[in-house]
Design a protein around this nucleic acid. Structure first.
Length: 587
RNA sequence: GCGCUCGUAGCUCAAUUGGAUAGAGCACUUGACUACGAAUCAAGAGGUUGCAGGUUCGAGUCCUGCCGAGCGCACCA
């Protein structure tokens, strides 16, 4: 009943408080600390307690750069917020503040643009790519379970999400001072292989598999499920075949090994395209000989219960029990995942263990954590499911079993082809066309996935995915290339001087200033979309600046504007890198 | 039936975690390339935030109840 909601509610609270701690930690660091600076300035003028979280950035530029809403003080001071704001605005002054205004109960604060800009640009020049880096992770190891495609099946669009989200989360954690360990937990074990073995023995041919491994194996798998609908005994044969595999049948093992090798070859091609690498490929099969001792441990702790011939762990009234062994003695997904979790803890001593796995598996991870907790492992709290929405086609889930599937490789190829055509049209004398087309095409696909929040289901739309205009990867890449182009033509320089700051430049400077906190927030929330949206925002600010301000033909402002462009180049490139997207200097 | 995740412009998504006039992109209409890259920029139009209550100075955001969508609910992973 309501108990379930309560349980998951607790988990949510934990998550958000964790995020809050990291944000806190960030503001106490030496990097960007503007909110804190503002707080300490404001605090001098009132006895009321002011917190970082009370400072906000106004929606409109004409309302200032920062604002303090005075409503929370009203009740205690027994005075109208409008008056409080007026009083505060009248007395606040600081060398970094240009002016303050009281509007509708807000104190609006306008910063001194010149000194603000000078200090930011100086910081950026000094720190370069290190800008936005921090040590909130304090070197802690974070294992990330990601991608994890199933052997003998094609790499589908569904696995794209886990791969690119996981990759970006790893990069973000690294930037924030953690040590990520990327684990590709291959789906290379389980009843499905028993079914595949049966199908291969019944209808398969060695020659065909050699010619087109994945395609042939997929066809066999789909056929199995079609025929099993009519002949249920096939399912029993599949289960039996898996059992014999698990018991070490040499002929079955040889076939399995062969299927696995062929699959890995194909996957590697895609990972090369995406530019994703792994620290471990230990899939489910790796844990085959490690499960007995775990089952034994469960038994010793009196957690195993016999139920309809199977062995289960009771995880509470409101959840279905966690299945450890089937009635035929074979293991299950949960058995392997429990074993893997313990093995990872022993191997990596992680401070966090993340699982970038689809929304639909949240029950499994809930069970996993409870079982580990019942085993006495306090670190079960460090396990965190990072769910994401499904890729839907016509509003429905894609299903391998029904052969309803979209191949990632074909989507990527199409994207690259389109990028090639666009380059041919817009920049035909570009030197390394192929390489750039790859970066842009793949960038478009990755970005279209990362820019929306993880948890949303995505309706698959090839046209949208290949788009290069508007809020897209290629838009950000194009902005970067444009900025690089200016730097190529600009005179080399070291020092710069800020004469004045116009509105276009000011927007850009404020956007640059946000980067470190964006990185931290994206890390803490395991949400690359925050960074992707930021990258678009920064690119928009730059393009607006570019379209309205003469950079090269104004010697008075030249040095400072070049410095600004250099800063944009640094932050855009770093943003794209953290998303796992390449940034060509020309396109 | 129960649970999880959601519901914002025609479409895809934002909204600084409860703050000011709910913002972008796509598509549509219009304007700008002898200033640095037009994969761009500038402008226009587009809204009862699924519905109904509640909490408070203030709700797209929090609470309750409906309606709708997707996913999940032991021998698949």
């Amino acid at each position: 009943m309501a108990k379930i909601g309560k349980l998951s509610g607790t988990a949510e609270v934990k998550l958000s408080s964790h995020y809050y701690d990291e944000t806190r930690a960030f503001f106490s660091l030496g990097g960007i600390q503007l909110k804190k600076e503002i707080v300490s300035i404001l605090q001098r003028f009132t006895t009321e307690t002011i917190d970082d979280s009370m400072i906000e950035i106004p929606v409109y530029t004409h309302l200032g750069d920062y604002a303090l809403p005075c409503f929370p003080f009203a009740k205690k001071l027994r005075q109208s917020p409008i008056l409080i704001a007026q009083e505060l605005a009248a007395i606040i002054q600081d060398e970094s503040i240009e002016k303050t205004e009281a509007v509708n109960g807000y104190v609006n604060i306008f910063m001194k643009r010149k000194s603000f800009a000078l200090s930011l640009l100086t910081t950026l020049q000094k720190q370069g790519k290190q800008y936005g880096s921090s040590n909130v992770g304090a070197g802690g190891i974070v294992s990330i379970d990601m991608s994890s495609p199933n052997i003998a099946k094609p790499f589908s669009m569904g696995h794209l999400r886990s791969t690119v989200i996981g990759n970006s989360i790893a990069l973000l954690h690294e930037k924030s001072g953690y040590q990520p360990v990327k684990i590709n937990h291959l789906g290379d074990w389980g009843t499905q292989f028993g079914k595949l073995l049966v199908a291969y023995r019944l209808w398969g041919s060695e020659k065909k598999v050699r010619e087109a491994p994945i395609e042939t194996l997929l066809a066999l798998y789909v056929r199995f499920h079609e025929e099993a609908k009519i002949d249920d005994s096939l399912n029993d044969k599949g289960r039996a075949a898996f059992k014999s595999l698990e018991d070490g049948d040499t002929e079955a093992l040889a076939l399995w090994e062969w299927f696995r090798t062929e699959s890995l070859k194909e996957f590697q091609r895609i990972y090369d395209l995406l530019g994703v690498s792994y620290d471990s490929f230990q899939g489910e099969a790796y844990y085959n000989d490690k499960m007995d001792s775990i089952v034994e441990e469960l038994h010793e702790r009196n957690l195993l219960v016999a139920s309809d011939g199977a062995l289960v762990v009771d995880v509470g009234e409101h959840l279905p029990p966690c299945l450890i062994k089937k009635s035929d003695g074979a293991t299950l997904y949960a058995t392997r995942d429990i074993t893997a979790a313990i093995h990872r803890k022993h191997t990596y001593h992680f401070v966090k263990s993340l699982y970038v796995v689809g929304n639909e598996q949240s029950l499994h991870f809930e069970q996993l954590k409870i079982v580990l907790n019942k085993m006495g492992y306090a670190w079960s709290d460090a396990i965190q499911h990072i769910p994401f929405g499904l890729i839907l086609k016509d509003g429905k889930k894609l299903s391998t079993r029904k052969g309803k599937i979209i191949l990632l490789e074909e989507v990527l190829k199409e994207a690259i082809l389109l990028a090639e055509k666009t380059i041919e049209e817009k920049n035909p004398q570009l030197i390394n066309k192929k390489e750039v087309a790859k970066s842009v095409g793949v960038g478009a696909v990755i970005f279209s996935d990362l820019k929306q929040h993880r948890k949303h289901d995505i309706e698959f739309d090839l046209k949208k995915m290949l788009q290069t205009e508007g809020e897209t990867g290629p838009y950000v890449q194009y902005t970067f290339a444009r900025a690089c182009s200016i730097l190529r033509k600009a005179p080399a320089q070291i020092a710069f001087e800020v004469k004045d700051v116009n509105d276009y430049e000011w927007e850009l400077i404020k956007a640059l200033k946000q980067f470190p906190s964006v990185v931290l927030r994206a890390t803490a929330e395991y949400d690359p979309s925050i960074l992707a949206k930021y990258a678009v925002h920064l690119a928009q600010s730059f393009n607006s600046f570019y379209g309205n301000v003469q950079i090269m033909n104004d010697s008075k402002h030249l040095s400072y504007r070049i410095g600004l462009v250099q800063s944009v180049v640094i932050v855009l490139e770093e943003s794209l890198r953290l998303l796992g997207i390449k940034a060509p200097t020309e396109m």
